[in-house]
Design a protein around this nucleic acid. Structure first.
Lengths: 344, 344
DNA sequence: ATAGAATGCTTAATCGTTTAAATTAAAAAT
DNA sequence: ATTTTTAATTTAAACGATTAAGCATTCTAT
């Protein structure tokens, strides 16, 4: 049994497709369709289990009610969760989301962008990866609506929804200092992306404001692709140095996971051998023998707001630029508890 | 600047859209397009950065090159990962995947099904939830191609790709018994889904084959929606009973996570207080103070094969029914290590 | 020279909708 | 008895692509 189309209904009802379209779209009033014929049309539609063809609708209207979501790394649970939020929120508004992960590769991101543009998505929500500025410019030029999520480029004027990473990292530093730690390192991705730089900057300022001198060796930058080995090397270096750190901030979930694995192998104890605060959030942090203190980003709000911004823009393309920085919250757990000797 | 269409190219080249279509689809030979004009068309297409409109193509061809993937619970990392595999594999073959999670609700699954059918997906890959048999029948009647993934209904003849859950669970039981445990419980979802029943059956047979009497109190069934509290109650009961269990099998990842959280709260030690084997896989199991023994399902193969089956069916709808059961592998870790007194 | 084949291109229908404009018929106003 | 309004419906173009069929040319063979 083939799918029923407007035509089929029209034939059965003995009317033109226009009438059917009007009735089924609730425009009977404006277009003055007779009550009797309207009833008949609705009945036949139900009988044939009519389902409109989205392709045809979209082709005609130029709107697909589809959002392209490009995520820098879907294997990161933070992003996976944010994707869920975006999907749910979009669905609530009658939009479908097509998700793609570029795995932190600008090239892949570019491919995705094109595939999704071909698929006629109405707009994009993008967690940008390094080196994708040109793509942002492209979207602006082509006048394709989009919102940057979680990461943005301060030098490009765009809509965005992101976390105040500077503040989050600053808070993490302050928290460790207040808990009695003073030799505090940070591990981050080697990257010139703004959100990463902000995390390092916040950490540095926390030290500075507490008259702790920052040493270059305290900042460990590793490459995303070769994280596995570089994290180990970095931790080896930290342990070998005379200035033995007593606490570390991990700027991302992935770094923390890799580091924790290695720390376990080395039989180091958290927090006595090393206190830890990490960005990102996941069940792992709860179930680790020593629950990990982490920076909780307003995941739900980030996702929802990004959808909200985009949909507003889709409804009214003239809408002004929307930018928002949301505050993260430090969730203190065992992994950063006050040093025995220090003040509680 | 608006998107260029075939018409735009045709106008610039001073030819009909037919020629442009032929050239850009590589049919110049069959349709005998002049070499000079073909060159010109290709050049103009490049200049205008022509991107074909998928909607129009699909409307015409009846093929969207889109697969609907309905997942029972995307918050389960096993499913999240399998979704990734499906997506990657589909992309390799030029297909886009639209993912939806029904959160184990048949009703939601039904909605998703309809939304995706409206979107004209070419076929489905489905991780079914309880009570969705009617949906499977519907797809069969409507002759819409689909493959069931991970879960299937033995009483309905369909294509499917799944794990041999009976064997996996049997192996888990044997492993615990060989490691010296004898009072072995299992926690599962209260469900009459086949995959769940098979897991319980496999466990029971492992006991039987080793002359261990199964007690009803050893099987704890909890509801998916109220898992949080019911898992706790179940564990409380186990601890309170005179027949104190020394090992447990968790039939799903979600159950294991909830149980481990509670076990931690109770300060029980794994495996000395209770050995554990769990289905599912995730980083948590690695980073837990005592790495968790788990059943590794052939995630990659499951995902890839399901795509393969579906695409074959799309290419040739007359293709015969394909069913496959894949073997899981038990990954032994600390959480089920041999009891001190028992044989190593 | 001329039928027939080969070549190169256009026409027009089609997929399933939407919607402005045209048409017709009936009712109301003159 | 006309004209004007109002109501109810149809027509047809459009969205952007594909493709079978048709129409001119030019070339080849008789």
């Amino acid at each position: 049994m083939k799918k029923a189309s407007l035509k089929d209904i029209a034939q059965q009802a003995g009317v033109s497709t226009a009438l059917v379209s009007y009735v089924l779209n609730g425009k009977e009033k404006e277009t003055r369709v007779g009550e009797a014929i309207a009833q008949k049309i609705r009945l036949i539609a139900k009988e044939l289990n009519y389902q409109p063809n989205h392709l045809a609708k979209s082709l005609r209207s130029g709107k697909t009610h589809t959002i392209g979501l490009i995520i820098a790394d879907i294997s990161n649970p933070f992003f996976a969760n944010i994707a869920r939020v975006v999907e749910d929120e979009a669905k609530k508004n009658g939009y479908t989301v097509i998700i793609g992960s570029c795995d932190e590769h600008a090239e892949k991101s570019w491919d995705l962008l094109n595939v999704l543009i071909n698929r006629q998505v109405d707009g994009f929500i993008i967690v940008s990866c390094e080196g994708s500025e040109n793509q942002v410019h492209y979207l602006k030029e082509r006048n394709i609506p989009f919102v940057l999520l979680d990461r943005h480029f301060p030098e490009i004027q765009t809509d965005f929804v992101a976390t105040n990473n500077y503040k989050a990292s600053y808070d993490a530093g302050i928290h460790l200092i207040k808990s009695g730690y003073s030799k505090i390192g940070i591990m981050a991705y080697k990257s010139n992306m703004y959100h990463m730089e902000e995390r390092v900057r916040g950490y540095k300022h926390a030290l500075r404001d507490n008259h702790i001198e920052f040493h270059d060796a305290w900042l460990k930058e590793v490459h995303f692709e070769t994280m596995d080995s570089e994290v180990r090397t970095a931790i080896d270096e930290i342990l070998a140095s005379e200035q033995r750190l007593d606490a570390m901030i991990f700027a991302t979930y992935g770094l923390a996971i890799n580091a924790l694995k290695y720390i376990n192998e080395l039989r180091l104890k958290v927090p006595s051998d090393m206190a830890i605060v990490s960005f990102g959030q996941a069940e792992v942090f709860d179930l680790y023998y020593c629950p990990i203190t982490y920076v909780r980003q307003p995941l739900e709000m980030l996702g929802k707001t990004s959808v909200e911004f985009l949909l507003k823009k889709l409804k009214n393309p003239e809408e002004g630029m929307k930018q928002i920085l949301m505050e993260a919250k430090l969730i203190a757990r065992e992994s950063s508890k006050a040093k025995a000797v220090a003040a509680g």
